[in-house]
């Protein structure tokens, strides 16, 4: 008890009802009410009826979304490695081409890229058939994977490049001073540290890909969004979108939880006990002791 009050100051029992506190409680009440209303809306009789009719389809769509994301992220990761190296190349032509690739895929909307490749491929169907690549574009799912992989490769290449270049220079110099061969320096010293720097942006990129994958529904892939749109257009029941929202939120939240746990696990050798304690103390201060900037 005494120890607990040392760590965390006990909140005074009667806090005044400031305007910020009233507003906070009102907003929380709104959230809780809309949460309950949504839950009621989903589980009442017509909701169960909807689930019985379309539930299985939505689950199938969910599985398609996961396949889509996993395939494109993995293919994109493989593709991003040569692009990242090309970006760092001293050869101006190679560097310029990689830059143009990255600029194009990061500077245009994913949906426009999907249209460009899915509908645009039809203009080159003779040529694509000749090189045996037509099957990629003929099927909406493979085409979506193709476009998403190209898109995420551009983002991942930038993440990888940034991480490699952000490994502290002293690490490189230390390795050189030890007389390690260049290959060993890269694989044993630079890359492992780069991966730790890249971990968080990688997690964000996967989340962006989960959200972006909804675009596949526009080019007729029946992923979660596609099944939802189909269910809505048949039943005109708005529940379809609410269920989809819940499933997407679960996916994204689960990934971000898993990812932050992974990050903590992989960086545990970097945590120094004193530093960690100091940081939590600082966080507490930031949360509680900061001057209140809310205008009343």
């Amino acid at each position: 008890m005494a120890l607990a009050s040392l760590i965390r100051p006990v909140t005074p029992p009667n806090r005044p009802w400031t305007a910020a506190r009233v507003l906070g409680h009102v907003l929380m009440a709104v959230w809780i009410f809309s949460g309950l209303a949504t839950a009621y809306y989903l589980v009442n009789a017509s909701g169960m009826d909807f689930l019985g009719r379309y539930g299985e389809k939505l689950i199938n769509g969910f599985a398609v979304t996961i396949q889509l994301v996993v395939l494109s992220v993995l293919l994109g990761a493989a593709l991003s490695i040569p692009i990242a190296f090309a970006r760092m190349s001293t050869n101006r032509i190679i560097g310029g081409l990689a830059y143009a690739y990255v600029y194009f895929f990061r500077g245009t909307p994913l949906i426009a890229q999907a249209f460009l490749f899915y509908y645009g491929a039809g203009n080159f169907n003779q040529e694509l058939k000749a090189i045996g690549a037509w099957w990629i574009f003929r099927d909406a799912f493979t085409c979506a994977v193709f476009v998403f992989a190209l898109n995420t490769a551009a983002y991942q290449a930038e993440i990888l490049r940034g991480a490699i270049q952000n490994v502290p220079k002293g690490q490189l110099e230390g390795a050189q001073a030890l007389g390690l061969p260049r290959r060993a320096i890269f694989w044993r010293v630079v890359l492992p540290q780069a991966f730790i720097i890249a971990l968080r942006p990688y997690g964000n990129e996967i989340i962006l890909m989960i959200k972006g994958s909804a675009i596949a529904s526009i080019i007729t892939v029946y992923d979660l969004m596609g099944e939802t749109r189909r269910a809505f257009s048949r039943s005109f029941d708005f529940q379809a979108y609410i269920w989809a929202a819940l499933l997407y939120l679960i996916m994204v939240e689960a990934l971000s939880r898993v990812w932050s746990r992974l990050e903590r696990r992989l960086t545990r050798h970097l945590e120094r006990p004193t530093q960690a304690a100091a940081r939590t103390a600082d966080d507490e201060g930031a949360a509680a002791g900061r001057p209140d900037a809310t205008p009343d």
Binding site: R21, G24, I218, A244, Y248, V252, E253, A293
Partner: peptide, 24 residues
Amino acid sequence: SSEPSLRRAASIYTTVFRGLPELL
């Protein structure tokens, strides 16, 4: 804000709208 309920309400808002696909 120093008010916990206000912080929580705002963080629910951002969690929801950062988690949903823009299209949805």
